[in-house]
């Protein structure tokens, strides 16, 4: 039987438009890859400050994603379970970092978390930790711009848990904490990992706010910008390719980690 939908002109036109979009994503990345010589990649790869920048970016993004889980999961649970007036406003607040320019984020963080900021000054005074031009500053910027991904992914997970499953666990003698740890968390595990993955990717790619609050120590995106300003396209594009491959590798690794394993493993004795 003829498939009416798939053979219609509408479907054909939409395929063409969609194909253009896919090409738009892939062509620049492909161009970046083919524009390099092995020599230029090797030359950039052995630079110690490039290596440092990459390692710093990975470390900071990983720590950011962990902090985001610790802070974001409780909020996501509250947004999913509690019903109160003003819920919509809280949801909107969570999404603010997605909507404002990242240079604005950098300026705002600088004002509050800088050495003289309302939070930055006391933190510096009591703990000696400065957010200005420091690793902590990098993590702070990454956290601000990527936290919506953690919260929203976890929120979707919590929304999808059948409440009857949590209720029956309570009637079986488990208190709220045991239900959360033994039942709810394993059921939202995949959503949390999706959030972790997106947060990690978003953190690694952050530039706009970091360049204002913590230009140094240089993260990979800042280093690429630095190379571009100092030495032009050749070195910066070689480093860009290295970052691109690394990012894709991590992305694919996590996808495999997510979907190649059973969601419950490690959670039940």
């Amino acid at each position: 039987m003829k498939n009416v939908t798939h053979s219609s002109t509408l479907f054909l036109v939409f395929w063409l438009v969609g194909g253009l979009l896919l090409a738009f994503i892939l062509v620049p990345l492909f161009g970046l890859a083919t524009n390099q010589t092995p020599e230029s990649i090797h030359r950039v790869m052995v630079m110690s400050d490039v290596q440092k920048a990459i390692i710093l970016t990975l470390e900071a993004a990983f720590i950011t994603s962990l902090i985001a889980q610790l802070l974001g999961v409780p909020l996501a649970y509250v947004l999913s379970r509690a019903r109160f007036p003003g819920l919509k406003i809280l949801e909107a607040i969570v999404d603010i970092p997605l909507t404002i320019p990242h240079t604005v984020v950098g300026i705002a963080l600088l004002i509050s978390f800088g050495r003289n900021g309302v939070i930055g000054a006391p933190v510096l005074h009591w703990t000696g930790i400065s957010f200005w031009s420091s690793f902590a500053g990098v993590v702070l910027c990454m956290l601000f711009v990527s936290i919506p991904y953690t919260v929203n992914a976890a929120r979707i997970g919590f929304d999808n848990v059948d409440l009857r499953i949590e209720k029956v666990a309570r009637t079986l003698g488990a208190g709220p904490w045991r239900v959360f740890i033994r039942i709810t968390l394993p059921l939202v595990w995949r959503s949390l990992m999706t959030g972790f993955n997106l947060t990690l990717a978003r953190s690694m790619s952050e530039f706009g706010s970091i360049v204002i609050l913590a230009y140094y120590p240089e993260t990979a995106p800042v280093k690429i910008y630095d190379l571009f300003l100092q030495f032009g396209l050749s070195d910066s594009s070689a480093m860009s390719l290295i970052i691109l491959v690394l990012t894709l590798f991590i992305f694919i690794f996590f996808r495999y980690f997510l979907f190649g394993r059973n969601a419950s493993s490690g959670f039940e004795r």
Binding site: K167, A169, T171, I183, L187, E268
Partner: peptide, 16 residues
């Protein structure tokens, strides 16, 4: 409360 509550569709724990 020691109540045996059997829910619609049984609400078994799908990950166990």
């Amino acid at each position: 409360r020691h109540i045996g509550f059997v829910f619609q569709s049984y609400a078994l724990f799908p990950h166990l």
